[in-house]
Design a protein around this nucleic acid. Structure first.
Lengths: 234, 234
DNA sequence: TCCCTGGAGATTGTCAACCATCCTGGGATT
DNA sequence: AATCCCAGGATGGTTGACAATCTCCAGGGA
């Protein structure tokens, strides 16, 4: 499954023929290759197609995705910073499982901190266009709930929160979020099989409504409920 | 200022002379080159030798540190994950300043979350050797305070907390810490010029003592005081 | 004058081939 | 049984060459 085709190719240059070489650009603007590799790997790990502890060998992945080791190396580093992988010098990278306890007691509270801050920051700056954007995601969640589509629900959930994070323009907050988000995502997929999608959609609708009210205290409360409460019962 | 000398060199091979080539290994085990590059850059940024927004050009850095672009690229990515740098595709990396507000309202609270968790996790596992290790750092802080040496004090401070973090063996917690710690460090250097080093040393001594008592509630309280309180007055 | 276009130059992103360095897992030795 | 040694496997690093983009600025046209 090639990540993207070769960037440029010239038609087989026949030795003594006039240089008609038509450059066949298949490049398009799909951004750096490493990002494509990153997405593939992240998806595969998140969806559980790798076992915890399984090795990720640069050369193999490079061949599989039809690219060179460079982009693969960078993608692996990124995955390490997203906590989906651990690696030791000269020994390579292995898949790292998410422990329920750490997610509940560390990642979720950290996330709460981030969101509380950025919601406060973004409050005045939000206009109707922003709310419309968020409403769209809530709508998607409702659809996903109706279709019992966990994937779409989680994606919309993430986008909902990410929209506000990015809108708040707090560089460091966003940085921490990027590092935490993939793990939370992976966690939802693993332990969220029997999550109540309707409830998720409803909660976000409620959160959005509270946001529109502009009442800071109410927002903090809604956030805390929304983020903290869903403990998949230990 | 070369990061490290060439890995292996053979004595100038005189054309028609018997292959006496004595391999002059200067390698030693100083780990991956990227780490050396990383440390140099991190230090320079932390110490304010780069202005906020200043560009970090791969080629220039590679030449300055006498290495190739590979390790430099990896170091820059790492710095990005440490929040000391931001980069955009095809546009390169620039130094990112730490905003006091984000440190106070985001990074510090996040840090508190991490430490609370890991301290609880590590409680029973701590033995006298561990406490001795921590006592050593407290001692260093006292020394640094006496000499009014901010650098040494901050270093020992970081090591104190990092020791417990790593001792707790919580992979995800440690991951987040690694991403946050450099920024907090940089923050201390920038805004901590008139910090009371004696107070810092004392607080850690107190924290250590509380740790040895094994009283979980007391430890949480001490942590909260220690980490949260030092607001350099806005 | 102001806006738009089209390079030119600079820098990042990728490739490929090669070598150094380090880790791992036997097998032979003691 | 414990230890040492070695070969194979993988990662870390180098080089040189291109491809892909971005930035900026000079001209041209409205």
């Amino acid at each position: 499954m090639p990540v993207t085709q070769q960037t440029t190719e010239t038609v087989e240059a026949q030795p003594l023929v006039p240089p008609i070489q038509l450059p066949v650009k298949r490049t398009r603007t799909d951004g750096p290759r490493r990002d494509a590799v990153l997405e593939v790997l992240r998806q595969e790990i998140t969806m559980g197609r790798y076992d915890d502890g399984e090795r990720l060998v640069e050369d193999r992945i490079a061949r599989e995705l039809d690219t060179s080791r460079g982009p693969v190396r960078e993608a692996l580093r990124q995955l390490e910073h997203e906590g989906l992988v651990v690696s030791y010098p000269y020994r390579g990278a292995v898949v790292l499982g998410v422990s329920e306890e750490e997610v509940q007691q560390v990642l979720i509270p950290v996330r709460l901190t981030l969101e509380k801050f950025s919601y406060l920051k973004v409050l005045e700056r939000m206009d109707d266009a922003d709310f419309a954007e968020l409403a769209k995601e809530v709508w998607t969640m409702q659809e996903a709930a109706a279709a019992n589509d966990l994937l779409r629900s989680v994606e919309a959930d993430i986008r909902f929160h990410e929209y506000i994070l990015s809108r708040s323009g707090q560089a460091h907050t966003a940085q921490v979020w990027r590092s935490i988000q993939p793990r939370i995502r992976a966690y939802f997929f693993r332990y969220g099989k029997e999550a109540d999608l309707n409830r998720i959609a409803f909660e976000h609708g409620d959160l959005l409504q509270t946001l529109q009210s502009g009442d800071a205290a109410a927002i903090m409360g809604a956030l805390e409920n929304h983020i903290t409460i869903r403990t998949p019962a230990p």
